[in-house]
Amino acid sequence: MHLFIQACILGLLAGGVYALMASGLTLAFGVMRVINVAQGAMIVLGAFLSYTLFTKAHIDPFVSVVLLTPLMFLVGVALQLVFIRPLRADEREELSLLVTWALALGIEGLLSVLYKTNYRSTITSYADKSWRVLGYHLSEVRVFAFGMSVVILTLLYLLLTRTEFGRTVRATVQNPVSARLLGVNVDKVSALGFGISVATATAAGAVFGMVTPFFPGSHYDLISRLLSIIVLGGLGSLGGAIIAALFMGMAEAVFAAEISPTWSSFTFFIVLIAILLLRPQGLFGTNERGAL
């Protein structure tokens, strides 16, 4: 029982970071119907950037997040303008899969050139410290990472529900044609939405680099997990993605602790198959377009 609860705690903390990673992916899908296969590569890129800032300039990864996210937001907007906007609307959904995959390969290639293909890890002074609460270990890094994810997701929620921009985003997700008729600049919303998506990936990457060793090819593993999560949550549903991420984080940790660590990544695939059989549109998805 002790092991089970410990695994649940670990899984919940990991799930929070998954939620941050998946939020951008599902948001980009909601706004543009674009599956960003490069999301995993963006996370790894974020991990490498914060790793570099930490090792070269001794900037703590939690501080570098504040510097990197605005920068990567702009990069995301630029990528959307150059690579995704030119795709014709009727082919965008399928072509964007391939275009973003090419982007992922490009990022992987670039990182391999710059950093070679060794495993890296951002090891801060508090990396192996943990608190003991009621006999359970709470790793400091993981708790901070979870906290940061909660803060960013809360900001994202406030942005989407309390601002004019958020309203235009939600309108676009619900129905881009009507949104356009009502005067929403859908192209602008799409570009900014993709920028936000990349920014969340960067933030998640900074903490990913502290809890997991990574190398330029790590993005494949990440993206397969994240895609399972957003399918489970329902494509385009932000709330669904968060719940699915927390659930998958815990399921994976419990599976690893109770059954087998080698097979724990299969938790994602088992759940994916189950959801396809029982509810192909995902927990909170609709048959047509996802709703935030």
Binding site: R88, L95, W101, G109, L110, V113
Partner: peptide, 19 residues
Amino acid sequence: ELYLLGYASVFLLIMLFLP
């Protein structure tokens, strides 16, 4: 590693200009 970059570039060019 450069090979991967070259591959990605060719890929992007085809997708954008000759889909």
